[in-house]
Design a binder for these strands. Structure first.
Length: 262
DNA sequence: ATGGTGGTGCTACCA
């Protein structure tokens, strides 16, 4: 049975319940992975989601910050969560669908403003988080798995609006890109989005601070869909729903989709 | 070189 998955940094699931429902109604992914829910799990507004067929959820939450959730129309059981770098943050949850596919949903630390761990503790935490992700996939090679989320890194030159201007900007520095590449290598992860859409600029995030985000188009591809090689070939129809960045009271991220024929 | 816009929950912290 084919299924469609979407990943979306929602920047408060309670404030943006209406556009989550809109996405569910208009796009109806079978599985919706959210990041930055900014809500304790028990305060996620499930009623409307259930009414649209999303009867299954696995989630981790905390008050005000972080938070990840997987909402699914397909039966799903929890498959663990990790606290990489020992931050005590709700940044990872895993679910296993009834077809045996495991989904890892990550919200990698943003890393603060300065790309130097000596002066910016948050940058060090981001690198450490990625290193521990790498080690965990190295220790336990994932199979039949999908990894999605806001990884807060735009790895390729065509994942940002200006490669040279962003080389020293957190999210596109060489050391972050190298750390992300090591996570990818450790799990043999295939970048499904770029396997599907190999050429051209592609973004999933546009700052709130731009006057006209659409016209300026100073975006970055921070949100990713990866899969293990045993199922990556089943993926197709990848896309970024750019229009969602222009919806009422938008998140600064747009949802990223992929379909798997499994 | 700087400040620009948001969310959360109390005054800054985070993105």
């Amino acid at each position: 049975m084919p299924f469609t998955l979407a990943t979306w940094n929602i920047n408060s699931v309670r404030l943006r319940e209406e556009i989550v429902l809109k996405l569910m109604q208009e796009e109806a992914p079978d599985v919706l992975c959210l990041q930055e829910c900014k809500s304790p799990v028990e305060k996620i507004p499930l009623e409307g989601f259930r009414a649209l067929g999303y009867h299954h959820m696995v989630a981790r939450g905390q008050k005000g910050y972080n938070g990840v959730a997987i909402l699914s129309k397909i039966p799903m059981e929890e498959a663990g969560s990790e606290d990489f770098a020992g931050l005590g943050h709700a940044r990872h949850i895993a679910g296993r669908l009834e077809n045996g596919v495991t989904i890892h949903n990550f919200y990698v630390p943003a890393g603060g403003d300065v790309a130097d761990r000596e002066v910016n503790e948050k940058f060090g935490q981001k690198l450490d988080y990625l290193t521990e992700m790498r080690d965990s996939f190295h220790a336990d090679t994932p199979e039949r798995s999908i990894l999605v989320g806001d990884l807060n890194i735009a790895p390729r030159e065509d994942d940002v609006w200006d490669h040279k201007k962003l080389l020293k900007v957190v999210s596109h520095t060489p050391i972050e890109v190298e750390h992300l590449a090591q996570v990818q290598e450790a799990g043999n992860w295939v970048d499904v989005t770029r396997a599907d859409i190999p050429d051209g600029r592609l973004y999933s995030w546009w700052s709130y601070r731009a006057k006209d985000w659409d016209a300026a188009d100073k975006g970055r591809r921070l949100d990713h869909v990866w899969a293990t090689p045993d199922i990556a070939g089943a993926a197709h129809s990848s896309r970024v729903l750019r229009a969602a960045r222009g919806w009422e009271k938008p998140s600064d991220h747009a949802p990223v989709f992929a379909t798997f024929d499994l």
